[in-house]
Design a protein around this nucleic acid. Structure first.
Length: 606
RNA sequence: GGUCGCAGAGUCUAGCGGCAGGAUGCCUGACUGUCUAUCAGGAGGGACGGGUUCAACUCCCGUUGCGACCGCCA
């Protein structure tokens, strides 16, 4: 079929714009053929662009030439429609689309491009599987939902930029080709041609650079920036992802919180939600005790300490280890559970024990407890404020035959395992309690909070030394300074996370700005002075030239947009994401490269 | 690295150890008020490799791809 040129055709409206007020106007619409309804002498074409859809009418009696051309149109052809807006008869109005009151009677149709028959259509009711969607991403992105997600992403990013800019933050770029640091995740490496055998690394985050910018006196920095981590993927983890990265001079954690709360309010507003600030706060310790996790999902009830429910006699008879934590997990509105479900809960107990080596407990059968110790069971119901429909799962330790010494690690694992049980059961019974279903009420749908006072170090059992829980530039609490050497495990950091519905949105800290403290930390981590110099020499030197107190945070933009879009995977809000095996199915990356390229880089593949 | 799930027409799927069914898309025809158009007709199918079996789309093993989770991700 003959194709037409665009010439100097200029569209007058987007395809979702026309309303009753445009009736009678001459319009030019440009877009894709979304659907064709051919009634013989009368043809309807829905023309679509990212803004919406308009029905075009071709009537053989009115305009035979245009009608003939329209009859040959197929899905995803690109067209220009020049015509007049017409009121639809009352009985032909389509309330399902924004432009449904009107239609365009086409005077002249131009065919700008044809389309091969696509493997799937943007208007399909069943969406294709992900493999197909990713391979033909350009087609998948034509779908309304994807267009909306990408637009939402733009709006959110824009609102955040504006908010930060208004508060005096400067957006400053930092290098993508930088220095590999062995800390943290694996680096993506970029070989240097000029220096054979040497590599740049793509940044896991602009951490060092933003601190240097504070040393340079920029005072308030931000960047919406790509970060790279060569680790295995998850639904909420991509190898390249976007952070809202910021750093400020002379801050207390509260200053950082205010900034983040402001831009999150702006971001949520852009998505149509009025968020209340300040967000609730909780220390790491409270989070672990009440939720068994450092990123509590507050849409579900906290765990309850049930030690008080048992008399000493109960404990002896039930062979419960009184030296350990006793908590109950409560999942609302589960109702009666079947024998099979009971079995599944028992199986979960084993699974948790396998995953948490130090876990000394079990998920107790509450029904059994009600039989054996009705008073204790009643008390637990009271303590949990449980409804009769609620599922209660006590997590207790059964006393070992020989008395084994329980450690702090056991106690911690007890909370962690209970927390995992809480989430697992909540997911399982999501249909019944409905806590994960959007209600339209912001306070219910989006539970934000700050988790503060993370521990400074974590002990690595295998390697037998202390690791930074956050990163090695995190400042300890001023009041814990003197415990750095004597009792590293009890040192709290000025580190904080912002959490939304059980997802860690962002993580930050007040940094160390004094070289003497930085060296102490490195010593506590078991790093020698030469080792420190080798890894961070330039940075330690920078600290010596008048470094102001500073701190900041970084938030995952992809995750924020994902939650706002109500999506289950980051791939729904990233235009060109990678598969679980870190492959781009559209461009087919990664690929081998030619021997010539390798030789130039001085690289041999084994 | 590990555990689990999935793999069938262009796409989405039902079922089955013995003729592979539907929806949608596509093609042809009819149709002047459709909008997931309708009606009639048509074309089109088992990821790869091995095994069990008289017979495998179906069962088993492996590979590959996709997905979920664990490990990993300061």
């Amino acid at each position: 079929m003959q194709l037409d040129f665009l010439g100097d055709l200029r569209r007058t409206h987007m395809c979702g714009e026309l309303r009753a007020e445009h009736i009678g106007q001459k319009v030019i619409l440009l877009g894709w053929v979304n659907r064709r309804r051919d009634l013989g002498n009368l043809v309807f074409i829905d023309v679509r662009d990212r803004n919406g859809m308009t029905q075009l009418v071709f009537d053989k009696g009115e305009n035979p030439a245009a009608h003939e051309k329209a009859s040959a149109l197929r899905s995803e052809y690109v067209i220009a429609a020049i015509g007049h807006v017409r009121k639809r008869d009352l009985d032909t109005v389509n309330p399902n689309i924004a432009t449904g009151d009107v239609e365009v009677r086409v005077d002249e149709l131009k065919l700008l491009n044809e389309s091969k028959l696509p493997p799937f259509l943007p208007g399909d009711t069943d969406i294709a599987n992900e493999e197909m969607r990713l391979k033909y991403r350009y087609l998948d992105l034509r779908r309304d939902k994807m267009q909306a997600n990408i637009e939402l992403r733009h709006k959110v990013a824009l609102a955040i930029r504006q908010s930060l800019s208004e508060r005096g933050f400067l957006e400053i770029e930092t290098p993508f080709m930088t220095r590999s640091t062995p800390e943290g995740a694996r680096d993506y490496l970029v070989p240097s041609r000029v220096h054979p055998g040497e590599f740049y690394a793509l940044p896991q985050s602009p951490q060092i650079f933003k601190q240097i910018l504070m040393i340079s006196g920029f005072d308030k920095y931000f960047q919406i920036v790509r970060c790279f981590r060569d680790e295995d993927l998850r639904a909420d983890r991509q190898p390249e992802f976007t952070q809202i990265d910021l750093e400020m001079s002379f801050p207390q954690p509260d200053r950082v919180f205010e900034v983040v709360e402001a831009f999150l309010q702006a971001a949520f507003k852009a998505a149509g939600h009025e968020l209340t600030a300040p967000f609730p706060r909780m220390t790491y310790d409270e989070a672990m005790r009440q939720y068994g996790i450092d990123k509590p999902d507050m849409r579900l009830p906290a765990m309850t300490d049930i030690r008080k429910a048992f008399t000493d006699e109960d404990l002896t008879e039930l062979r419960i280890d009184a030296s350990m934590n006793m908590v109950a997990v409560r999942i609302p509105k589960v109702g009666k559970i079947s024998d099979r479900e009971k079995k599944e809960i028992r199986a979960l107990s084993d699974e948790l024990a396998q995953r948490n080596k130090e876990f000394a407990g079990v998920l107790y059968d509450f029904a059994q407890l009600e039989k054996k110790r009705p008073q204790a069971a009643t008390k637990i119901r009271e303590l949990c404020a449980a409804d009769s429909e609620d599922l209660i799962v006590p997590v207790v330790a059964i006393a070992a035959a020989e008395s084994k010494a329980r450690t702090a690690a056991n106690q911690h694992a007890q909370f962690t395992a209970a927390g995992e049980a809480r989430l697992e059961l909540a997911r399982k019974y999501a249909d019944r309690h409905g806590a994960f279903t959007r209600t339209g009420e912001v306070g219910n749908d989006f539970k934000l909070l700050w988790v503060t006072d993370f521990p400074m170090f974590e002990y690595d059992e295998k390697e037998n030394h202390w690791n930074p829980a956050h990163h090695p530039f995190t400042s300890p609490h001023e009041r814990d300074m003197d415990k750095l050497e004597s009792d590293p495990g009890s040192v709290r950091a000025l580190a904080y996370d912002v959490v939304l519905n059980g997802t860690e949105l962002g993580s930050g800290s007040i940094r160390i700005h004094r070289q003497d403290i930085q060296e102490k930390i490195f010593r506590a981590l078991g790093m020698s002075i030469p080792e420190m110099k080798e890894r961070f020499g330039f940075f330690l030197e920078a600290l010596e030239y008048g470094t102001p107190p500073h701190g900041g945070i970084a938030l995952g933009l992809d995750r924020i947009v994902m939650i706002l879009a109500g999506a289950d995977s980051l791939r729904e809000v990233i235009p060109f994401p990678k598969t679980a095996k870190a492959v781009d199915l559209m461009v087919d990356a990664p690929t081998p490269v030619s021997d010539v390229q390798l030789k130039e880089l001085g690289i041999k593949i084994k």
